[in-house]
Design a protein around this nucleic acid. Structure first.
Lengths: 368, 368
DNA sequence: CTGAAAGCGCTTACAG
DNA sequence: CTGAAAGCGCTTACAG
């Protein structure tokens, strides 16, 4: 279907080249002097009590500048770094959060993750990252493991927003913020986007082009977000008094061609398609190529979830753009606030706006 | 340059909707009974000593099946989970590794990260993820923070393989494996790909099409990997006795059009382009559109680093595909071996093969 | 097979 | 401003 011919090459060697060990690596590793310096060591060297060192590190007031200087110098000499594990044991915050997404290789989630990571770093937080592979049991296990690590809070893109494990987890003491979709069986903070309204705008745009038979194609139709988009699509058509066809649900790549062929040979052959998510859009685009139907000419297309390369496709694809970096930043900030206890209201659902990026697959022409 | 017209919408509301708190969330959180159970609690409930519980958890031999059963039941009753922080303090492995990449939003790195994450999970490891944003000082800080957390090992895509901080870090006790490129100032394990040979195959393919004037375009030319690819390009042309033009180095998006215009108006106007990395390829593609030059017809293009959507572009782009998931998996496995001490040889450099995915931008025609 | 003691490296009260 | 004591939750020797 996609036109790739892989060429093999004789030079494709898999080589493991041992490098001559010119550093004293092994010795260094075993050297006992290399053992990490502790608070005690620093205290001894600086000639003070352990508490004074601790206070200096934590910027407590009530340490004479004089002593602080001595301590700092000792710290530098020994290259001392506080042991995080010991700190956490005394009830300190771990200064870490967990992030669990379905698939890191998906552009949308990787952009969200990058933003989360950056926001966390700015606050001195480290982030655990895990991918659930769309498997609720993996998700539950990872959340568990993180909570007991422990982390100060968790950012989660829930695969199944009704899974019972969420009930237990949200009742616990670790704050949780969900990204992209809220949890349906408990009240937690969530940050998402205007799915329904976004779908409406995309479909309205197609209607504006004069299309009457608009089909909807989607994958992952069990997700609340996708359901919302489909609702938006239906609302819009109902409002315009146009016929609503049942949404074409694609489960896998193999479904695509048969389903599309059937759709186009039916007497309800559509003149426009609304793809409710990017996977559906990509599959539709591939299928249309296969079927020799030119987008923006034989058939119009508008998608939900804009992917950068949609601009590079011919013709460029019109799509609803989600503010992925904002989603990451906002959710991370909200979680950090919860952790610090700065934010004590009840759960909030934040809904971010989306915008339609009009290109050419919908039938619009490029302005020169 | 890219044709996007953002439409604003009146309904683009940013709404923060407080949800009525119908769960007893707050009470639960403060409830002291909710405090995590400890080893001691379990021991008391099971009527045994703490050690017995510890041994049961860790599957030590020498625990009578009878006692073990009682302990396990107590664990279940109290929903006990060992505190990781306490364990680590007694010198146990943390069962976590760190991964630092330049940019998580980059497809190549996000695919690598996903694979690393998965491999780690299969071994019960959790992974810290950080992005350096191509800034060596951020990279150094994150490595530091992870090492002192502590983590058992670190996977790193070094931004500057000569940065002096690497000297210190690699001399330490935490094993480090670099991905994509080795460190130049110390001997550590690394897992990368055949950059030079890959470039050669791509350029040879262009030569095979009869092109004589082949230009090379690249970004991030300070990276060893890119240098290698450029060397491969030059070797190949030298071998074919064709003129070698100086590599066009693009620093930012704004450089592209001026540089390309100049390149094409010079008397050495190329008939083919080798893009040494995906960013360069994308910029070149955009520029060619702008210049109304059709790939595979007016100009041939082959790129290093295949990106999924290259197949969806018109014409589909011919590119050297790197085994990103393997890169992630292999490096993670190698690191885990080092951590367990299973692997005690000196540092190894692993080089994975790449393959050319021939599509149409090079001038090949799609087989029907 | 089982448990009491000591300690991992830090911090929180408590006394100076 | 500073320090000695106790404890966070576990595990490693050491004795039964």
């Amino acid at each position: 279907m996609s036109f790739k011919y892989i060429l093999g090459f004789a030079w494709c060697v898999f080589s493991v080249i041992p490098i001559t060990q010119n550093t004293s690596e092994v010795n260094v590793r075993k050297s006992p002097t290399n053992k990490r310096a502790t608070l005690e060591d620093v205290a001894r060297l600086a000639g003070v009590g352990a508490m004074t060192v601790s206070r200096t590190i934590n910027d407590h007031p009530y340490v004479s500048e004089e002593t602080a200087r001595r301590v700092r110098s000792a710290i530098r000499q020994l290259d001392y770094r506080p042991n995080h594990a010991a700190r956490m044991l005394t009830g300190q915050l771990s200064r870490s959060i967990g992030l669990i997404v379905p698939d890191l290789a998906d552009t949308f989630f990787s952009v969200v993750s990058h933003a989360v990571q950056e926001t966390a770093r700015e606050s001195g937080y480290l982030v655990w990252l895990a991918a659930s592979n769309y498997d609720p049991s993996i998700e539950a296990a990872q959340v568990e493991q993180m909570i007991h690590h422990p982390v100060d809070g968790i950012l989660l893109v829930p695969v199944d927003s009704k899974d019972k494990y969420l009930k237990t987890v949200t009742a616990g003491t670790t704050p949780i913020v969900t990204i992209d979709r809220p949890i349906e069986i408990a009240a937690t903070d969530s940050v998402g986007v205007e799915n329904r309204a976004g779908a409406r705008v995309a479909v309205e745009h197609l209607i504006g082009h004069g299309h009457k038979k608009i089909a909807c194609v989607a994958t992952n139709t069990h997700l609340v977000t996708i359901k919302e988009r489909i609702l938006g699509y239906e609302e819009c058509l109902r409002h315009a008094k146009l016929p609503i066809s049942k949404t074409l649900r694609l489960a896998g790549r193999d479904d695509v061609m048969p389903a599309m062929t059937e759709l186009f040979s039916s007497r309800n052959r559509p003149d426009a398609i609304f793809a409710a998510n990017n996977a559906a859009a990509i599959w539709v685009i591939e299928a249309l190529r296969e079927m020799k139907l030119e987008m923006g000419k034989h058939i119009a297309l508008a998608a939900f979830d804009d992917v950068d390369f949609f601009a590079l496709i011919t013709p460029p694809v019109t799509a609803v753009r989600q503010p992925a970096p904002e989603l990451g930043r906002m959710s991370a900030r909200l979680l950090l606030q919860r952790i610090k206890g700065e934010f004590v209201s009840s759960s909030v659902r934040t809904v971010l706006p989306v915008s339609l990026v009009v290109r050419e697959s919908c039938g619009c022409k490029k302005k020169e």
